[in-house]
Write a protein that binds this DNA or RNA. Structure first.
Length: 199
DNA sequence: TACGGGATCTGT
DNA sequence: CAGATCCCGTAA
């Protein structure tokens, strides 16, 4: 068994704990026609209660309701009227907490018209990865379960064997694009990945 | 009911 | 660095 699906208990932790652990894991998208696209998560951000940048900072509203849902479900929202962003909900139900998936290193993309470098930019950013994976609000509040439209797999053996868990070099910095909570260092990315949205 | 801004990206 | 373009949160 090379990959293992991550299930709910793993996500029942604060977003600031889950977010760094998700880097190196694999987001799996199964399209309606059954085809599957995988991407290694290379960049995440955490959003938590008490965090002024969290969409649920003030109260529960129709938009942010998904953040209060069970761990291991999705929170998908529309931003700037154009792009979607996908989060993985963490913490026990009722606690608004989530990890924004900011960038993926897509696996198995074969397109002769694109350079390797260009392929690495296809999902380099939260809006771009949702566009590429065709993720919109119809996938809001979806459980991350194998065989569903979206799920997550643990770091593969080739990443986790031997010396390697330690070799995932994480960089921790401040989050991007915010006007509130700008000083909280709740963004993590895989050092050296060509698919990270910004250095 | 009206209004303004947003966890973004692209092309100029 | 402005524009795209929609939803929703807040105020009235």
């Amino acid at each position: 068994m090379l990959t293992q699906t991550i299930d709910q208990p793993w996500f029942e932790r604060p977003a600031t704990a889950v977010a760094p652990d998700l880097v190196g894991c694999c987001l799996v998208r199964q399209f309606p026609d059954g085809t599957i696209q995988r991407g290694i998560i290379v960049e995440t951000e955490a959003y938590e209660p008490g965090d002024p940048a969290c969409h649920a900072y003030l109260r529960k509203t129709p938009r942010n309701a998904a953040m209060f849902g069970p761990a291991g479900s999705t929170y998908v929202y529309l931003i700037y009227g154009i792009y979607h962003c996908v989060n993985i909900v963490t913490e026990i139900e009722g606690v608004p907490s989530a990890v924004l998936i900011r960038a993926l290193d897509l696996q198995g993309v074969v397109d002769p018209s694109l350079s390797i470098k260009a392929i690495h930019r296809l999902a380099a950013g939260p809006g771009k990865l949702c566009r590429y994976l065709n993720i919109d609000r119809s996938l809001n509040e979806t459980a991350l379960v194998e065989g569903q439209p979206l799920w997550v797999e643990h770091r593969s053996l080739k990443y986790t064997s031997a010396a390697d868990v330690q070799q995932i070099e994480l960089v921790q910095t401040t989050r991007i694009g915010l006007s509130q909570g700008v000083d909280l260092p709740w963004r993590w990315y895989l050092k050296g990945s060509p698919a990270v949205s910004k250095l």
